[in-house]
């Protein structure tokens, strides 16, 4: 087979592009149900916090546990238990533990500020994830961080409804966007 160096270079460039895109789409397929799950958690918990603001701490603890457990179940269904992404699980556990430590250390009393801070950190984590695994995840993280920062700085009159709609909604719509080819 007669292949010139130019043909070889073109073919290898093609391979890199297609393989890279395949890897990115695979990351999106894995992330999509997790984003949708967390969007539902954000929406439900924030709606409940709007009704019972004094229970925000307990509501978020319960919501985080549901989200975390659900993410592990989704991950193991997609990959199979022998290929469970233990690094992903540990990363999520570390982020949640660090967030809990920040809550304790800073002794922030204003629950809304605390909520916005933790959601801002989550958005930043998604942005870092997106740097390595795809632009769409980065963009979603940027939107979540922006929504949370705006909520924390501007304290809109219906803070929890804002977080449920804008934050939870962005995660759900974003998760569906990740499924598109």
């Amino acid at each position: 087979m007669n292949v010139t160096p130019q043909d070889a270079a073109r073919a290898l460039k093609d391979v890199d592009q297609v393989a890279g895109r395949s890897s990115t789409l695979r990351a999106y397929r894995a992330a999509s149900p997790v984003f949708i799950l967390w969007g539902l958690v954000w929406a439900v918990v924030n709606l409940c916090c709007d009704q019972w603001p004094g229970q925000a701490g307990g509501l978020w603890t319960a919501g985080d546990l549901v989200g975390f457990a659900g993410s592990i179940v989704i991950g193991s269904r997609m990959a199979g238990p022998e290929r469970l992404n233990w690094r992903g699980v540990v990363t999520a556990a570390v982020v949640m533990a660090a967030a809990a430590a920040v809550v304790v250390l800073l002794r922030i009393r204003a629950v809304e500020t605390l909520t916005a801070l933790i959601c801002l950190v989550v958005g930043a984590v998604y942005m870092v994830w997106g740097v390595w695994h795809g632009a769409r995840i980065f963009i979603l993280g940027l939107i979540i961080a922006g929504v949370s920062l705006a909520a924390g700085l501007l304290h809109p009159p219906h803070f929890y409804l804002w977080m449920a709609g804008a934050g939870g909604g962005a995660l759900i719509v974003g998760g569906l966007w990740l499924r598109r080819l």
Binding site: A11, D14, A19, R21, S23, R26, R83
Partner: peptide
């Protein structure tokens, strides 16, 4: 076919 193989190659 090269692109098809490249698309499948990164998958476990």
């Amino acid at each position: 076919r090269l692109r098809l193989m490249a698309a499948l190659y990164p998958l476990p």
